[in-house]
Structure formats: C-alpha cells, structure tokens
C-alpha cells in the first residue's frame, strides 16, 4: 500500500482506519467539486492508493483533509506520505520537481528572486 509504513522502518503511531467506501467524502472535496470524477475523489484516491497505482493523479489532491473531517471512520488520505513514496519511485509532475529543486537551491518554491525583487509576503491584516 502507498500509505504503509516507510522502508526506513518508521512506524505510524496513530492508526489510520481503512476507507469503507461509503462515498460521503465526495461532496466536501474541493477537487471533486470542480471535476466530479470518481478517481479524483477522496474515495477514488484511497482505492488507487490501496491498489498501489503509482500515478500523478495524487498530486491533484489539495491536502486540505476536508474528507477526513466528514469521514465516518476518520480515514486520513495521507497525501504527503503518498507523494513522498511516488517521488521515491520517480513518479512526479514537472511542477513538483521544479518546486522541490527551487526550495533546495533557493529556499523558495518559485525560484530565485530577480535583480531588485523582494520576497513576497503574505499578510492577513
């Protein structure tokens, strides 16, 4: 499974209950709200993860975990871990590859600053 403990032997302390395929997550998923395709729904992605389908569709999940909030058994899609395994297998989108490279090289997912450019900051008030 793409969500099983890692090869380095680390073990998840918290149990992740398996998806029971009820589909209640579909209607809270922001990705499904737009595309309305089962394989991009949390339930669909859980099934693909369980089947070890190494696919770039996992990069479309927004990692918001709204699905976990409504899940009757509290299944966690664990998107970060799934992606980490995909990267280890060389299954990656170009955008993800560039982002990681930029962070490693420049500490900035968008790449180096241009001459005179100052880092953008997020403010809330």
């Amino acid at each position: 499974m793409l969500t099983e403990p890692t090869a380095d032997g680390s073990v998840e302390l918290a149990e992740n209950p398996p998806c029971i395929e009820c589909g209640l997550c579909r209607e809270v998923c922001p990705l499904f709200a737009v595309l309305r395709q089962e394989h991009l729904s949390p339930r669909g992605l859980a099934l693909l993860a369980e089947r070890e389908v190494a696919s770039v569709v996992f990069y479309q999940c927004t990692l918001c975990r709204a699905c976990k909030e409504v899940c009757p058994v509290g299944h966690d899609p664990d998107g970060e871990r799934v992606r980490a395994r995909l990267v280890a297998r060389g299954v990656e989108t170009e955008a993800n590859r560039a982002m990681i490279e930029n962070i490693r090289k420049y500490g900035n997912p968008f790449g180096p600053l241009k001459e005179g450019e100052i880092p953008k900051t997020l403010t809330c008030c």
Binding site: E21, Q37, H39, S41
Partner: peptide, 17 residues
Amino acid sequence: VSTALEARIACSRDASG
C-alpha cells in the same frame, strides 16, 4: 471519456465492495 487505469479502477466497484 477515459480509458485510463485510474478512472477504470475507481469505477470498478461501488460501496458494496
């Protein structure tokens, strides 16, 4: 329309399993 493996697996079953 899709014949991709991802779409076909996801629609290969319903909540009955």
